[in-house]
């Protein structure tokens, strides 16, 4: 086995305090296996990085957690409740930023946010109030009536993060939220999200293929070809694999696999 599992992250036991538990989840598109026996736990206020190259299965996992796809094998629990049994109701506590932008380009920022707010059952007044708060946090207050088409990539992302937080979720899922942005915009979004964890206690699952977005103290799950290759604090993964950096560790863990016993 080449997976190193840190004792700080429980993987298979049901933990009632966890926000999100993924338990032995498997998923296939026809014959192609996308996820194989994937487990992970996310605790309140945690910034958990899901690291893997394109095609590793990150988006598939997100689509399962957000109920877009149905779980085929295993179980996903949100705040201790099984996603399969409790249905859409559990999404009340989930905010999501998708890999591809899901904003309506021809609508204004406010109109986009209002659409999401109404789907979450927020009254117009409450929605307006939250909209102003969340946009202020991402320094976009002056863009309420700007058409999304006129915003640059970084600003669109910020709007999407503000949107995902309108209904005050406990869990925020970000699927490659910084893809296609310049380094500065990437950094500022990463910092903003970390602040949400620290100050508001929101749990974040941050999918990325960019190692530089991960800090030493972050819990990390390395996903490769649909399998969990390593799990634990970034530091611990490095020391377990006797590598100086996470990049080296990642290289080593996925390299083994390429040489190893692929069917």
């Amino acid at each position: 086995m080449n997976g190193s599992v840190s004792p700080t992250v429980a993987t298979s036991q049901i933990d009632s305090t966890a926000i999100l538990e993924v338990l032995k989840v498997g998923f296939r598109y026809g014959a192609k296996i996308a996820l194989d026996d994937v487990s992970m736990t996310l605790n309140p206020g945690e910034f958990h990085a899901l690291l893997g190259p394109n095609g590793a299965g990150k988006s598939t996992l997100f689509n399962l957690i957000s109920r877009l796809y149905q779980v085929q094998n295993g179980e996903i629990r949100l705040q201790g409740q099984d996603l399969g049994q409790h249905g859409a109701k559990l999404l009340e506590d989930v905010g999501m930023v998708f890999q591809q932008s899901t904003l309506d380009l021809e609508l204004s920022v406010a109109e986009n946010l209002h659409y999401h707010g109404s789907l979450q059952g927020l009254s117009r007044k409450l929605c307006r109030q939250r909209m102003e708060e969340e946009l202020a946090r991402v320094e976009m207050s002056d863009r309420l009536s700007t058409k999304v088409r006129q915003l640059n990539g970084g600003h669109r992302r910020r709007v999407e993060i503000a949107r995902a937080l309108l209904h005050r979720p406990k869990l925020l899922l970000l699927d490659e939220a910084t893809v296609g942005l310049d380094p500065e915009a990437r950094k500022s979004i990463n910092q903003h999200v970390r602040k949400l964890c620290r100050e508001d206690g929101i749990s974040v699952l941050w999918a990325t293929h960019l190692i530089e977005e991960i800090d030493e103290q972050d819990p990390v799950t390395i996903l490769f070809n649909g399998k969990v290759k390593a799990q634990g604090l970034s530091q611990a993964i490095c020391s377990d694999s006797q590598c100086a950096t996470l990049a080296d560790a990642f290289e080593q863990l996925t390299q083994n696999n390429r040489e190893g016993n692929r069917p």
């Binding site: 957000s66 998708f98 059952g121």
Partner: peptide, 18 residues
């Protein structure tokens, strides 16, 4: 519409109703 459909399906309301 893919994008807006995703936003729609993130609603906690029953899918049939949406």
């Amino acid at each position: 519409e893919m994008g807006s459909m995703r936003v729609l399906l993130m609603s906690p309301l029953p899918r049939g109703y949406l």
